[in-house]
């Protein structure tokens, strides 16, 4: 990538100062996304994925705080931006799709009004043009009789339909980056693939980039150009999707991949990563993953591994990375 990436996150640290200690939800995360790229941000629950998304939009509320790092949109640092500047970025340059469509729409405003709000905020269109744009957008996300449906309220839509509305809202002002935070987790499996296909098509059509936040590597492997894997608020591995899925170098990524049900090579039992994510307020010395890692050795308890280039396009933070073809 020769020119400047659309978004570059550099050493982002977002911490939450709670009564029971400081939670380093995001602790030194860096990545880049080019124009038109889709990046998967993967990890278990509590891994800090959503916090990355909210940090980018400046939506971290007390007791959370971005302690350090840069978030560069076209080279402009959003961490240092004022609230007024951030408002022009939100929805206009970067928009977001939330996890649960049942709660992300305001129950008391009609769908039309909620869509119109984005256009009123970010465009100079008159009422008629805004209405037309809303109808067109609603149709393009697969909602029929759109003009009528604009008057409807969220409770009159099913979950899948609501997520389509949320996606329509996110796309309305033609943002250059969409942050999708587990956009299909709350939906039925049958609806999931529909919504994913829809998002991929819409993003390709509009030339936008996307950060797809998910715990589901299967989803991300279909959608993303490259993947960043988070563990305990840190990047443990990243690289192009094919390299990372086919031959991950970090045992954590290996574990995530092995726990996807595989219809071709059926096993009797689905493998899983033993143990749980450690208490993030009280992380052990050395590698955070060592207690769950089949390859851990004495060194792992002493020195925290840093992100280093591995085979192919991969980088990972592991003292004993996997080579291609090697089992965990």
């Amino acid at each position: 990538m020769t020119d400047q990436p659309l978004l570059a996150v550099r050493d982002l640290r977002t911490h939450f100062h709670t009564f029971s200690g400081t939670v380093k939800a995001v602790d030194g995360v860096s990545f880049e996304i080019g124009q038109g790229e889709v990046m998967g941000l993967v990890g278990e629950s509590g891994g800090g994925k959503s916090v990355v998304g909210f940090s980018i939009l400046g939506l971290i509320d007390s007791p959370g705080k971005i302690e350090a790092g840069e978030i560069l949109l076209d080279g402009k640092n959003l961490v240092a931006a004022s609230e007024a500047e951030l408002r022009k970025v939100r929805g206009r340059e970067i928009s977001m799709v939330f996890q649960d469509p049942m709660t992300s729409l305001n129950p008391l405003h009609s769908v039309g009004r909620q869509m119109d709000e984005v256009l009123r905020l970010h465009t100079d269109l008159d009422a008629k043009a805004r209405q037309a744009a809303c109808v067109e957008m609603l149709e393009s996300v697969g909602i029929s009789r759109a003009a009528e449906r604009l008057k409807a309220y969220p409770h009159q839509f099913s979950g899948g339909m609501r997520q389509r509305v949320v996606i329509a809202i996110a796309l309305l002002a033609r943002p250059r980056l969409i942050i999708a935070d587990e956009p299909t987790t709350a939906l039925d499996v049958t609806i999931q693939s529909q919504i994913l296909k829809l998002m991929r098509a819409q993003i390709a059509e509009k030339g936008a980039s996307m950060i797809l936040i998910t715990h589901d590597l299967a989803v991300v492997s279909e959608m993303a150009d490259h993947i960043t894997v988070l563990y305990c608020g840190k990047v443990v591995e990243r690289g192009r999707t094919r390299d990372l899925i086919n031959a991950p170098s970090h045992p954590y990524t290996r574990g995530l991949i092995d726990s996807i049900p595989d219809t071709v090579n059926r096993h009797d039992r689905l493998s899983q990563i033993p143990g749980t994510v450690p208490d993030i307020r009280n992380l052990p010395k050395g590698c955070n993953f060592r207690d769950r890692c089949p390859r851990a050795q004495a060194l792992c308890a002493e020195v925290e591994p840093q992100l280093e280039p591995q085979h192919g396009t991969l980088s990972s933070a592991c003292h004993f990375p996997l080579k291609p073809g090697e089992a965990a």
Partner: peptide, 17 residues
């Protein structure tokens, strides 16, 4: 605490709105 409040902010709405 509701999601739609954060979603409204993510749309770029002013604090007052």
């Amino acid at each position: 605490r509701q999601d739609f409040m954060k979603f409204a902010r993510a749309k770029g709405a002013t604090r007052g709105d």
